[in-house]
Design a protein around this nucleic acid. Structure first.
Lengths: 208, 208
DNA sequence: TAAAATATGGTACATTCGTTCTATAAAAGA
DNA sequence: TCTTTTATAGAACGAATGTACCATATTTTA
């Protein structure tokens, strides 16, 4: 067989459909694909479309012209707003159960803001994050994680004071430095076993 | 003539097309519209489609089935990032000339973040806006305006110090109060003729 | 190597569907 | 009222297009 997923005719067709829709705003016909992919018979196109549909990568409606739809997402993504974060609140970690469509509220954001990462959103309540330049009512986009690179903005759970706060993290050998985003404010020190990373902050959205 | 824009056949058609695309993912044919809008001749549909296209509300490609596209925006909008704002920089006000496609960079944001307002974006340089919880690199969404309601976040040009700053504005009889978004910081007073409103801030986006 | 699965080609039918032509009615402007 | 514009109607032509049938090549599996 040909290269499993790469340069095969079928991947070409898929890519062609994608580009066609992108450019023209509607789907190509069998014969558009035929020309666009240098195929010499409509039956071949039909054959590959049948396979692609069985694989769930496209949808078609029988006997309806230009009805091909890609199963790909668009360039915007629906993010579930899982809840509220405030000082003293642990972050509700999303698991595959409570995830699907059950978030009472969602937020549509451009896909390039989050890349491929699995992201959820939290509404910030109160001014407790204000030293990270995050105000009451702001929405933070979070990626769940329990580790982080130095300098990343993370949500950390401080065990002794029992609160969550957003800070830039710098892990050193014997301690952890938590710096507010606001450079005029001083970093705080924590012992390594007192901080528990809950997630990385990948974005902030403020509607006024 | 019928009600100018409301319940006319043409508006029905437009709404039907919108719903059809939303639901099926491709455009209706002339005959789909015929059935969906209780019209008894394809020529009538054709006639209204011709008018709609002349009005610029739809696009079609001749002799291509299901090629109707709505001129409506999707639920995301491309915002031009017109430039950079920093302390001391006046805001470049967009006029119809420099607007079209010439902004070197654009930002795709959800349409419900700005409603119907005409909005542009500025990248914030430096920490000069940090007391308004706006950091270096943040993008502010602005609506040009030279007046504002009390309590709105506005970009104001301070004549004496020759700088732009983002603050909440409260106009009183004899003076203007400018409050940072950060409630722990004190407001500053200005005489009314020293402040010049450049625009309203309608959103903040921070990518991390 | 034989058989089965997968991929490619050629052709043609039947429907779908954009378009056009003509006629008539209703509304607006003069 | 007469004319012009706008809207509705019926029908039909012909091109666009999904689909089916058959044959053949290529690759995989046994």
């Amino acid at each position: 067989m040909r290269k499993p997923g790469l340069n095969s005719t079928r991947e070409n067709i898929l890519q062609y459909i994608h580009g066609f829709i992108d450019e023209r705003g509607y789907s190509p016909t069998v014969r558009d694909i035929l020309k666009g992919c240098d195929i010499s018979s409509t039956a071949v196109v039909q054959y590959h479309l049948d396979v692609l549909e069985k694989e769930g990568r496209i949808h078609r409606d029988p006997e309806i012209f230009r009805s091909i739809r890609l199963s790909l997402k668009k360039n915007t993504v629906l993010i579930p707003i899982l809840g509220t974060i405030a000082a003293g609140t642990p972050i509700p970690v999303p698991n595959s159960d409570n995830w699907s469509g059950q978030a009472t509220e969602t937020l549509e954001i451009p896909q390039d803001m989050i890349g491929n990462k699995s992201v959820f959103a939290l509404r910030v309540k109160g001014q407790s994050m204000i030293d990270a330049l995050i105000d009451d009512g702001d929405i933070v986009l979070m990626e769940s994680a329990d580790t982080a690179e130095n300098g990343e903005m993370v949500a950390v759970w401080l065990k002794d004071s029992e609160e969550v706060t957003l800070k830039r993290i710098y892990i050193e050998t014997d301690r952890v430095l938590l710096k507010p985003a606001n450079q005029t404010m001083k970093p705080i020190q924590q012992t390594r076993d007192n901080v528990e990373i809950q997630g990385k902050v990948v974005g902030v959205i403020r509607k006024l």
